[in-house]
Simulated scan of single mutants.
Amino acid sequence: MASKQLLVLAGDGIGPEVTGAALMVLDALSHTAGTAIEVKEAAIGGAAIDQTGSPLPESTLQLVDKASAVLLGAVGGPKWASGPRPEAGLLNLRRHMKLWANLRPFEIFPGLEDRSPLKNAAGVKGLFIRELTGGAYFGEPQERGGEGEEAWALDTMIYHRYEIARIVRLGFQLAEEAGVPLTSIDKANVLESSRLWREMVNELHQDFPGVPVVHRLVDSAAMDMVLHPHEFKVVVTENLFGDILSDLSGGLVGSLGLLGSSSVSGVAGTPGLFEPVHGSAPDIAGKGIANPIGAMLSLAALMRWSWQEPEWAMKVESAVKAVIADGLRTPDLGGHATTEDVVNGVIKNLGN
């Protein structure tokens, strides 16, 4: 394995703790393999605001451009409720890196079935593919006007064919690799942008005739994710729906602390942004009890996607599952284990 350049953006709250835990796992793995990893760190979010006044300073962007992958902790917190928003740093980073797909796997791990609200939790496993650059989050205009009872607010949900085509094509590719249907979620009975979305899915289906397609409306899909979660194997959807439903998947598995994510440009082997899906959790920051599993699984995704090292990724994932099966649980999972306990357990299981 050639030398890799990793940029760590620890961010705010528990971000430094969980990225630090992931780096310990990486160090143990690279040491065993005799491989050098060049790790650099930079500021983002609230920490960057405190240092430079900007949630994404130019000095950070310069290091981003040189890295083969970026591992992020978390951004935000009540300290920055006014003035520049830490979250703007993350949105601008995705835009700078030209990332348009967010991959968020979810799985109820053996040994954690009791943490899920589902009656039949065993075997639930799937992947959300969320479009990142279009929809209501980025449509223009976004504005407010009027006064008093006539005051109004406007958001614009807009999608271009190329934005839909590239994310849907990626969805078909990943469903084909997994040998499962592609579930597409929209609101085509109401929204014009969703009607275009569904048209594009049907059009691209011609290039993947061996992959069954299931169209679902977002409201009924949310209900079915709770009632029939095993049906959702590979799911592709637009920005707003993906943001909401992928967090719902966190509720199904028992804790957002168990989920990692990848923001990529759709081509494996290219730089991406990898981060746990939990927030900065300022209420537990510095207490040493943050769940680092989401950050570790994000590291595994980084190894598989940007570094093209699936064997390393599988070692991390297997070690995480072994620790969970052994009953080691942080407080968010109803246990008393510390962040350090999880790190030590994962490192111990790396060679198994």
Rank of each mutant, 00 (worst) to 15 (best):
Gly294Gln: 12
Asp12Phe: 04
Lys40Thr: 13
Phe241Thr: 06
Phe106Gln: 06
Ser220Gln: 10
Tyr137Arg: 00
Leu328Ser: 09
Val346Phe: 11
Leu29Lys: 04
Thr338Trp: 03
Ala222Tyr: 03
Tyr159Gly: 02
Leu61Cys: 02
Leu258Lys: 02
Val320His: 08
Ala268Cys: 04
Gly46Trp: 10
Leu29Gly: 03
Leu170His: 01
Asp243Gln: 02
Thr60Met: 01
Gly139Lys: 05
Arg195Val: 15
Val168His: 01
Pro16Ala: 05
Tyr159Trp: 11
Glu140Gly: 02
Lys348Gln: 15
Thr35Asn: 09
Lys187Gln: 11
Leu245Thr: 00
Leu174Asp: 00
Ala151Val: 12
Lys4His: 11
Pro105His: 10
Gly171His: 04
Ala88Val: 12
Ile158Ala: 13
Phe109Ala: 12
Leu132Tyr: 01
Asn189Met: 06
Glu317Lys: 03
Gly53Leu: 07
Ser184Gln: 02
Ala88Gly: 09
Pro16Cys: 04
Thr183Gly: 14
Val235Trp: 06
Leu328Ile: 08
Phe241Pro: 00
Ala300Lys: 05
Asp207Arg: 12
His336Leu: 15
Glu107Ala: 14
Lys4Thr: 14
Ser318Tyr: 12
His96Phe: 07
Pro141Asn: 04
Leu170Asn: 01
Leu91Ile: 13
Thr183Gln: 09
Thr237Phe: 06
Asn239Leu: 01
Gly83Cys: 10
Pro117Ala: 13
Ala21Gln: 05
Val70Thr: 00
Pro229Leu: 10
Glu17Pro: 07
Leu174Gln: 02
Gly46Phe: 04
His31Leu: 10
Pro141Arg: 04
Met1Ile: 08
His215Cys: 12
Ser262Cys: 07
Ala10Ser: 11
Asp247Glu: 05
Leu191Val: 04
Ile347Asp: 15
Gly250Lys: 01
Ile185His: 03
Gly242Glu: 00
Asp341Arg: 13
Trp197Met: 04
Thr156Gln: 02
Ser249Cys: 10
Gly77Ile: 05
Trp80Phe: 09
Pro292Ile: 12
Val201His: 02
Leu127His: 14
Pro209Tyr: 11
Leu56Ser: 00
Leu217Ser: 05
Ser306Tyr: 01
Ser249Met: 07
Val234Leu: 08
Ile293Thr: 14
Leu72Met: 13
Thr156Glu: 00
Leu258Phe: 07
Ala285Cys: 03
His215Pro: 13
Gly179Phe: 10
Val8Ile: 14
Leu248Thr: 06
Tyr137Pro: 00
Ser246Gln: 01
Lys119Thr: 14
Ala2Phe: 10
Val75Arg: 00
Leu63Ala: 07
Val316Ala: 02
Glu58Tyr: 06
Glu41Pro: 02
Leu56Ala: 00
His160Ile: 07
Leu90Ile: 01
Gly76Glu: 05
Pro110Ser: 13
Arg85Phe: 04
Phe106Val: 11
Leu26Asn: 02
Asp207Trp: 08
Gly266Ser: 05
Ala81Met: 11
Pro105Phe: 10
Leu118Asp: 08
Phe172Tyr: 05
Leu103Gln: 01
Arg144Lys: 07
Val320Arg: 03
Ile158Arg: 10
Ala136Glu: 14
Leu71Asn: 02
Pro84Glu: 09
Glu203Gln: 13
Pro141Glu: 05
Trp152Thr: 08
Trp307Lys: 07
Lys119His: 14
Ser263Ile: 04
Gly260Tyr: 08
Gln5Arg: 15
Ala290Phe: 05
Ser116Ala: 06
Pro78Asn: 13
Ile324His: 06
Ala43Val: 14
Gly126Val: 12
Leu103Met: 10
Ala2Lys: 15
